[in-house]
Design a protein around this nucleic acid. Structure first.
Lengths: 374, 374
DNA sequence: GGCGCGAAATGAAACCTTTCAGCGCCAGGC
DNA sequence: GCCTGGCGCTGAAAGGTTTCATTTCGCGCC
């Protein structure tokens, strides 16, 4: 219909210069009320829409934030995306989405794509830790914030939950409710390594506790059901009395599988704890105990860091921000005898051990962040 | 570090003109192999990254696709986003995300934001049907594809499941497995109207079937639990013997609530069917019968339409694309007596009624699309 | 009435790319 | 040997905005 109507047409129509129109958009207070009104009327009449591409081009950098997650179908990432997007929108920023689907090639393509789009910064849950590609990206000037606490805090900002503490909490909780033979299910281990580390630490600190492992290819419901089936196939005597699933999806699948075999009860025969506290965790047949990650806090902090890095330029000091997770006790780990303390969201109650990680945890109370600067 | 390195610096470094560098990027075959190699080497050495903003600006329109959904935390939309994004990435396009959170103001802001970004097109699950704002958007030239079959096919392309057919299928299935007193739970009705229409049509076609309604504010697990509680509060005699929940989240909540009250059994006392077939539907304590929506097909078709509309310009003929949903039978509607036919994903088996919608459904078999052109 | 000052408006430059008309050059046909 | 055509390269224009050095205007004050 109309050939593109730009700032120039508006200026002509309103009888002012392009500079004035630009000022109306960006520095209204430097414009006479009379002119302001005139220009605004012209904009309406012509149906002017500011071209953000040109704007970003001229201004040097984007108003867009790239998010690369492992899989957007995972409710944890969906919630994270949701929180990020709400937070970004407050500043007129926009989130563009990339789901790597656990595929390094896709991850690379998204990084390239986003860099070409001159995103203001990227938030990445990297597949293989920090690759050279990420380093190059950063050194070219694109702020990068990682969801991965194993990153080198010298060169990258990262925002994560303390997976070691979380794993420790979960396992300690299982131990304190009387379980002794614990199975850690999850994988690939490269992705859930910290949780495993925490779990094994807790196990080592207690006499008579054994921790066994079952690695999965993925953290999905389907994989969980397979884990469940494998457990059911074990001789009853050698079955674990508790399972720590590396995320809630897995736990849901395990639960499903165990419960269909009606001779086993959760939590009486086998206790089960997950990780993430996705919305469904409270809605499974046996409501799932889990480790809660404050996604909105993570999102907010990630964006804060991103902006800081974008604004400060090279003078920026990277930091690793570890949020302390929180234990959420529900039915699936109820102790066989009496209930262990108050149920509900009593954070960290079971993590009174002497380790550094756990004392940090109880200090931080699940909300504060600890900064490890460079 | 480096001042931005652009096509110009590359040209200088390689000893060619900017035009040649551009050709290397866009029409490599018009460039001498020698020059091509020289330029590519220079790009690598300088760490050149093409500026997509300038590119899009010059080329007139974007490589970005705006997606505005009701809530990205809803697994149905998360899956849709996932499918879209995978599909878009094939063409080097990018998906930017907006979650309106059932809030008209947010929806508006996203539409504005995306228009300013000169998206190639928008996919919108509109809150209040087609608003004047959407019409204006379209008339200014941005392709708009709706997830809402109630849209006027004269002026918009839309891609949806046939909600009426789905509602009819679900309800017919309940009736055929012997249920007579059916409760439709969901809302706001403006969003699930078609499903309700289909349900009430199926009810009317059968003697002795009553359909009652319970409106919700939202389609979430929490609302579902409230629905469940309300049902439990009813005198046992007047409780429905089947519930058709307008989506799976709601159904999950209802299930949770009913099952915690252990005197009721699903499906024996109350059958339950959901809508969407989210991943969790198969993983709830009682696996949930539901209506499956082929999300990846929808995504693909939506993008096809979007590109068609973007390329064809004003000569484009809008169309409404209705995909036929598919009945997925699981435990939660098992008939009280024997199992009704094979369980599993036996599509449409229960939808042999004489109505137009259902015969279309069995013809289309859940994959084909029916086009209602303008 | 003239001077100077601050506020407001101006218009060209810059951001980085793609496109395109034009130019030089070489091979081949006459 | 000259003309034609084709191929590759060149360099400037265009695309819409913001920025900024300048110009213009209005007003108070001497």
């Amino acid at each position: 219909m109309k050939p593109n109507v730009g700032i120039r047409e508006v200026a002509e129509h309103a009888g002012v210069s392009v500079g004035t129109v630009s000022n109306v958009l960006n520095h209204p207070k430097n414009v006479t009320p009379a002119n302001l009104a005139k220009v605004q009327r012209s904009m309406l009449e012509l149906g002017f829409v500011r071209n953000d591409l040109a704007r970003q081009l001229r201004m040097g950098a984007g108003s867009t934030i790239g998010l690369v997650v492992l899989n957007i179908s995972n409710p944890f990432f969906a919630d994270l995306a949701h929180a990020l997007e709400a937070e970004a929108e407050l500043n007129g920023h926009t989130v563009i989405l990339g789901s790597s689907d656990q595929n390094a090639e896709r991850e690379d393509r998204y990084i390239d794509l986003f860099e070409e789009q001159r995103v203001r910064g990227m938030l990445i849950a990297p597949l293989d830790g920090v690759t050279p590609r990420l380093s190059r990206l950063r050194s070219r000037g694109t702020p990068v914030i990682l969801f991965d606490s194993s990153a080198d805090p010298e060169h990258f900002c990262s925002v994560t939950l303390d997976g070691t503490a979380g794993g420790y909490m979960a396992t300690s909780h299982l131990i304190e409710t009387g379980r002794r033979s614990i199975l850690f299910a999850g994988g690939p281990f490269s992705q859930v390594g910290e949780r495993l580390t925490g779990a094994s630490k807790a196990a080592r600190e207690h006499e008579g506790v054994t921790l066994s492992l079952m690695e999965t290819n993925d953290l999905t419901v389907a994989e969980g059901r397979e884990v469940g089936d494998r457990i059911l196939a074990m001789p009853a005597a050698s079955r674990p009395d508790a399972i720590f699933a590396a995320n809630d999806l897995l736990a849901v699948g395990i639960l499903q599988s165990l419960i269909l075999a009606s001779d086993l009860s959760v939590p009486d025969d086998i206790a089960l704890i997950g990780y993430d506290d996705i919305d469904f965790a409270a809605s499974t047949m046996v409501p799932l105990s889990t480790i809660r990650q404050p996604r909105d806090l993570i999102a907010r902090e990630a964006l804060r860091l991103l902006h800081e890095e974008a604004d400060a330029g090279s003078g920026h000091v990277h930091g690793r921000h570890l949020f302390m997770p929180e234990l959420v006790v529900r039915e699936s780990t109820r102790s066989a005898g009496a209930a262990a303390g108050a149920a509900g969201a009593a954070g960290g109650a079971g993590v009174a051990g002497g380790s550094v990680a756990s004392s940090d945890a109880s200090t931080a109370r699940g909300t504060a962040a600890k900064r490890t600067g460079a």
